[in-house]
């Protein structure tokens, strides 16, 4: 999927706004995703992150502002696995391939390969979604997204319902994949640490109306970030006043902080 080497694919969002009835959900959103870059949208629940992602995925019509994308094979992962209950694991993974007109043998082969890569067992491939655990279903959803060899991944907190161990494992899988093929990622999360672990750019959103209040770049490559780095950055980010107001945390009073933290 590295067809256009000269001009890397690019997603450009300019002055994007959205309203449900009279309520303004999003206002004046500007953001960019270039291939090879991971952009995280961080913000409290209900700040319009999912709406923004759905607009980028083309699941809703854009009314205000514009979205220009030169990515031609985007894939989406939703908050829930959203597998088709009447299809086996293998057919679920191959859904996008079937839609693209890939032949049966070829798509079965690729679905099987990806299923095994994402940590599914051989016998899981023939099962129906309701026979799989939540973690397994998330793996299937990840495999389904990766199966079409996307150049842009849109992730809507896909692993938020999983325990930390499983989450870390799936993110490691994802990072590995990002490293091998350079694709653009726009991910939503309300977990700052997750954003810091994975992304190159962090956009902090604030609610009512949903807008970007802070932009944050991390230059250290994701593969080189260790736990200590993530904790340090998280602490740093949490001291930013824009981040604190966005998450409705009380503003820091420096004296109060030192007095409280000294005894520990």
């Amino acid at each position: 999927m590295t067809t256009a080497v000269h001009a890397p694919a690019h997603l450009e969002v300019r002055g994007l706004g959205h309203k449900f009835a009279l309520q303004t959900i999003l206002e004046a959103i500007d953001l960019d995703v270039t291939s090879g870059e991971v952009v995280a949208l961080v913000g409290p629940s209900g700040c319009g992150k999912t709406t923004l992602l759905h607009l980028c995925a083309g699941l809703m019509p854009v009314r205000t502002g514009q979205i220009i994308s030169s990515f031609n094979n985007p894939a989406c992962m939703f908050q829930q696995p959203r597998l088709l209950p009447w299809k086996s694991t293998l057919d679920n993974i191959a859904l996008g391939l079937k839609a693209a007109g890939t032949g049966r043998d070829e798509r079965t082969r690729r679905a099987r390969m990806l299923g095994l890569q994402t940590g599914l067992a051989h016998e899981d491939l023939g099962k129906f979604p309701h026979q799989l655990s939540g973690g397994m279903q998330s793996r299937v959803a990840l495999a389904r997204a990766l199966a079409i060899m996307p150049d842009l991944l849109l992730l809507d907190e896909p692993f938020s319902a999983l325990d930390i161990g499983l989450k870390a494992e799936l993110y490691a899988l994802l990072l590995h994949h990002l490293n091998t093929c350079s694709l653009g990622v726009l991910m939503i999360t309300h977990d700052l640490m997750e954003a810091i672990r994975l992304s190159d750019t962090i956009l902090v959103m604030a609610p009512s109306p949903g807008r970007i209040v802070h932009r944050f770049r991390i230059d250290l490559p994701a593969m080189q970030r260790d736990d200590a780095f993530v904790y340090k950055m998280t602490a740093e980010l949490l001291q930013d006043s824009a981040v604190r107001t966005s998450f409705r945390l009380a503003p820091i009073k420096s004296e109060l902080l030192t007095r409280q933290e000294l005894p520990c």
Partner: peptide, 15 residues
């Protein structure tokens, strides 16, 4: 929600 999946994975109308 499954309709969204169909749109996101660009399923042709017949499929």
């Amino acid at each position: 929600q499954l309709g969204d999946v169909a749109t996101a994975y660009r399923l042709p109308p017949l499929m």
